[in-house]
Nucleic acid binder design. Sequence first.
DNA 1: AGTGTATCCTGCAGGC
DNA 2: TGCCTGCAGGATACAC
Length: 276
Amino acid sequence: MPELPEVETIVRHLASGLPGHRIREVRVHQADLLDTPPDGFCGDVAGQEILAVSRRGKNIVLSLSRPQFLVVNLGMTGRLLFFPGTEGGSPPSHPGLDFLLEPTGTLVYTDIRRFGRLRLLSPGAWKEESARLGPEPLQKGLSDSTFHQALQRSRSPIRSWLLDQRNIAGVGNIYASEALFRGGIHPRRPADTLSFQEGKALLAGLRAVLRQAVQARGTTLRDYRTATGEEGNFAEALRVYGRNGQPCLRCKTPVERIVLGNRSAFFCSRCQPEAP
DNA sequence: AGTGTATCCTGCAGGC
DNA sequence: TGCCTGCAGGATACAC
């Protein structure tokens, strides 16, 4: 569910409210959201201050005082909600974990399908983990030529390539389709067949759609919510994702749906020709 | 190396 | 109304 724009939206909310709070107590309702025994997790986290909140790919990263990092991946249906006051909000339908904060506030994790994970990592472990992720697409440091060189090293379909977090961090199924449409690239094109110009157009399309989606606070199809519980507004701006059979907004050709690596890809066969 | 398949889960929409 | 199937923003492990 949550891709870069959704996670970025959540992180911005949390970064403005959480730092300076101390975690007084953790309540675990679903132990399978952790990769370690809950007792140890609670003991480790309790008493630590939250110093900062940041994003790496689709991960929410809380810097704790020990120092340690609490890394939250929302999976498909995870939510991380911040209630600043003494009121913790209405009880969620699928409670996961509650972080009770000092001097006041509650950080609530909920997750219907429980594909999400919360992990407590040492600085070294998180550094290694982060190094396995590809570059951040919105960072200036990623040049057209670096991007094109990376594409040259893979023969997998470009849609699959975009979803692989080791290639580029934060892209998921929605924005992969949207970026390919904006770049005029067919989702099945082998990555290493993209010309420099095509790679440049794809990166530009990816950056444009990610920026616009962040502005709209993300795409709510069903489950995603911001840290304040609001829906994102980008669903109405999607051009191909989920528009199977509807006319292309650019040329009126019906949008097609194909399956790649067991996941749907949406595209316009006229705007994104498979053979040049 | 790349791809298809399965797995972890719950909920919802659509067909009958 | 109920039952069944397929599908869903993610990540990983496996066999070929």
